[in-house]
Amino acid sequence: MLLQLNNIFKWVNSGGQRIFLLKDINLTVAEGEFISVMGPSGSGKSTLLNVIGMLDNFDEGEYSFLNEPVHTLKEKNRANLYKQYIGFVFQSYHLLDDLTVKENLEMPLLYKKVGSSERKSLVADTLDRFNIVGKKDLFPSQLSGGQQQLVGIARALISSPKLILADEPTGNLNSKQGEEIMELFKQLNNEGVTIIQVTHSEKNATYGSRTINLLDGRQINALNG
């Protein structure tokens, strides 16, 4: 078991009223799963992803990640945890415009204090694996959207995380590019990477092994595996 969420609540207080962003979420994710989170706008998909990614806090409930009780950890330890095990992929790629493809890939390794030679070989391997060796000295603005997202995924994967969180990874791409990215996810999942993706598209959801539907912060037809 990779992670488990038990009765997670998240709310904001607005004008004396409590508005629930997440309401009683229960979810268990095993290693090797590929989960799609679906639901209309404002249903709490991204919030759930951020909570899982430990970028955002929740107000009530228990969250254990690799048997660590996340809800009791201090902010700093929590950050250490996600930095070690989780990779993020964003809808708008979030590459650093001032850095080349190679440097963008290198960045997570620098923060992990990976030695120079190991870093070089990891970057070279990754460039090779994603077939972007020819693009390594280009800046993000010189790439197409699909290529940028490819770099985004490569960057998320370079430090070998256990879990990839992808927030509408194909949302800014055309259908052909989107398909390629989903195929890539599929392949990564087959290689053993756990993936949770947020998506609007039924078609993309089918790439996953199961789907979680959210509405107004609640799970509907939840399948607790």
Binding site: K83, G87, F88, H94, L95, L96, P108, Y111, A156
Partner: peptide
Amino acid sequence: KEVGMRKTVGAY
């Protein structure tokens, strides 16, 4: 944006 990004990929 850069700060956010760097933090998510592991910057302290």
